[in-house]
């Protein structure tokens, strides 16, 4: 039975690969929930999040309908290839390994990192001058660790933690002057769960690429080049007309 399934899946993949590209009037998105704030369910069960809203806005721009299918992460690319849906928009980081199987749109988002400090901290803009002699907390081996080490390792002490929990504990204890974290992680552990004890310092950081990567892309089947191009064009339009910024602000705006 299993063999039969494999064979039929394989032939389906081959057929899909050779079939003619078609015009879509409905695009079905595959998405893995929850991953706040990118994609998650509201209390009433509706899907929402940055990916979902941006995806819908892109479809509106192109003039097609879109629907969302929830799919577990480990089966999300096989599901695309097996035509359960036509695209994946689920905070998928663009990388070469995935490029072998799917076609990516232009990156639509790079998860930002941010500096967090106690609310009474005097640091306003993180720089070599302001961080000199301070103690910076990072999670060991993260891209934030690499960035902070290269930028400020020579002037500041860098404390590396295995878990974000240990780091928050030391921040509470007053052992750290400032921490550099993935923004959603920092928001949920430092901003949301503490009553105003912490604040964001400076701007969010998602450049340069060397540290922060290629960002998230929408994945399509390789033959759907036309569709991917339509989405790329729509993304450019949304970035120009301010829709993208509005969404970005909605999900990543920080209360100062």
């Amino acid at each position: 039975m299993k063999k039969l399934l494999t064979v039929s899946l394989l032939s389906a993949a081959v057929l899909a690969g050779t079939a003619q590209a078609r015009d879509y009037d409905t695009v079905r998105f595959g998405v893995d929930v929850p991953y706040e704030p990118m994609e998650y369910r509201l209390p009433n069960g509706d899907l929402t999040g940055f990916d979902i809203e941006l995806g819908n806005a892109l479809c509106d721009e192109i003039g097609i309908d879109c629907t969302w299918t929830v799919q577990g992460w480990d089966g999300i690319i096989p599901g695309l290839l097996a035509r359960k849906y036509d695209a994946i928009m689920s905070s998928m980081t663009i990388n070469d390994q995935r490029r072998k199987q799917v076609l990516f749109s232009d990156p639509y988002f790079t998860p930002p990192s941010a500096w967090f400090a106690p609310a009474d901290s005097k640091i306003t803009v993180p720089s070599k001058q302001t961080l000199e002699g301070k103690t910076i907390g990072v999670q060991r081996g993260t891209l934030q660790d690499n960035y902070a080490t290269d930028m400020f390792g020579d002037v500041a002490d860098i404390n590396r933690y295995s878990t974000a929990d240990d780091m928050v504990l030391d921040m509470d204890a007053g052992r750290l002057d400032i921490v550099f974290l993935d923004f959603p992680v920092g928001k949920s552990t430092l901003l949301d769960s503490n009553d105003g004890d912490y604040k964001i310092v400076g701007k969010m950081i998602s450049e340069p690429k060397k540290y922060f990567g290629d960002g998230f892309g929408i994945a399509f089947r390789k033959r759907d080049k036309e569709l991917a191009e339509k989405f790329d064009a729509a993304l450019d339009t949304l970035k120009e007309n301010g829709t993208y910024d509005k969404l970005y602000k909605k999900y990543f705006e920080t209360k100062q």
Partner: peptide, 18 residues
């Protein structure tokens, strides 16, 4: 190294992660 001291093992973990 679990309490953030950069000892020998801490250095190794740093290089490993990097």
């Amino acid at each position: 190294s679990v309490v953030t001291i950069m000892d020998l093992t801490g250095a190794a973990r740093f290089v490993y992660a990097r």
